[in-house]
Design a binder for these strands. Sequence first.
DNA 1: TCGACATAGATGCATCATGGATTTATGTAG
DNA 2: CTACATAAATCCATGATGCATCTATGTCGA
Lengths: 246, 246
Amino acid sequence: MPRTIPDDEAEFLRSYDPGAFERPSVAVDTVVLCVDDQRLKVVLSRRRDHPYLGAWALPGTFVRIDEPLEDAVVRSLSDKAGLRLDHLEQLYTFGAPGRDPRLRVISVAWLAVVRPGNLPALPDGVVLGDVHVGWEGEAGGPASASGPGGAGLPLAFDHADILGTAVQRVRGKLGYTDLGFAFLAPTFTLRDVRLVWETLLGRALNKDSFRRTVLTRHPLIDTGERQSDVGHRPAALYRLALEEEE
Amino acid sequence: MPRTIPDDEAEFLRSYDPGAFERPSVAVDTVVLCVDDQRLKVVLSRRRDHPYLGAWALPGTFVRIDEPLEDAVVRSLSDKAGLRLDHLEQLYTFGAPGRDPRLRVISVAWLAVVRPGNLPALPDGVVLGDVHVGWEGEAGGPASASGPGGAGLPLAFDHADILGTAVQRVRGKLGYTDLGFAFLAPTFTLRDVRLVWETLLGRALNKDSFRRTVLTRHPLIDTGERQSDVGHRPAALYRLALEEEE
DNA sequence: TCGACATAGATGCATCATGGATTTATGTAG
DNA sequence: CTACATAAATCCATGATGCATCTATGTCGA
């Protein structure tokens, strides 16, 4: 008759040798966002296996035993789409026991941004979906995606929640960080900046107030160059100052 | 002669059966903060095992195979100190391969807040350390801890980084959330609120501006009661409005 | 009993950020 | 050369904020 292991001894064993207990799997999933033609896009990959066969998933992979989390993110994105990222930050960790019906997977979700100019041709089964957000401001909640014809792209697992969390994070950080500029080419007009912000925030912004605030709150430098061939007065081209640059 | 497994086949195997690869262990660690007598405190537990024997660690545990992350947090805190939390949110996931010298442990760190009134007597080996932050504002960076006599409490693993991240998060969220009120008793004066904020932010605040901003930006309700036995004019006692309360 | 003391709380004011309208500037296209 | 579209500066009203001043109200000690 097997003896009952008291709780504190079990706790000791677990802290001494966690291998004695079954371990969850650890994955990374990345929300790769991009603003193109005033639409918010996300990189999605069509699932070729059960569960959620045919549904669309954020690119991700399981984390190798000696691999930093960021390395797993970069590996999963270059393997899957040859992507070069302009911004990467950790988002949130999703670990509900039922989120993957096969087995316990704890996924560390990441937020990545790519400028349109850095987007490579995507391989088969990988698309840029349109992001649809059913809430306003920074309320939060799940988000959905649709394809070129407007057809919905059903998302696998809890990836609608992850996508929504990513949009919420971006909206929250636009004002007090330089995150918004990761969506722009290295050189841009103030109009470009505003259009990106309006796309990300999902609402119109006052043109002149925006000009003032963005110029005072972000380290922008007038390159001295102007637009050309635009059918109206050309706007000044700015760039974001690097660190330690005034 | 064993054949070489091509990369894409390896990828397929991994996604089909992650059990075929060695899995990291997953833990939760919680920064339990509390403001008492204008000092920021954190719950620390003295390690009884190698590595970092005798050093001080944030309370934590390994996550069980079918256990939600939050449940692991609550379990580790009630097991270790009988703590009832007034606030709990996920903080960040720390997963550098070398952070635990024994084995790969990916730790989902959490931020918890306890009002001083809800602090139980702590068991042996668990203390409330004073938090010391070597940076200002929301700059970020590691934080340290000291004991009752002022003696340093060396922190195990990367727990100085986790503690610093927690303080940074609290400072950032004070202004636009009600997080600060989790550090206060259910009923409080505006002075109590300001002292808590000053402790958390590590700097003095203008008394009157603070009164105005906190009253306009947070849903406070005047209970109609006053302080008593305070040696000066008694202040009004407020409480935080619940949801859907005006 | 009364006045010192400490803090609460209100008021006033200068400054700055913001929303919004107006005006002027400057390119292209017909 | 003019219409057009947008850039960019200016002006103004409003509201938030930092700060100083003034009044209110409790306890406590002489």
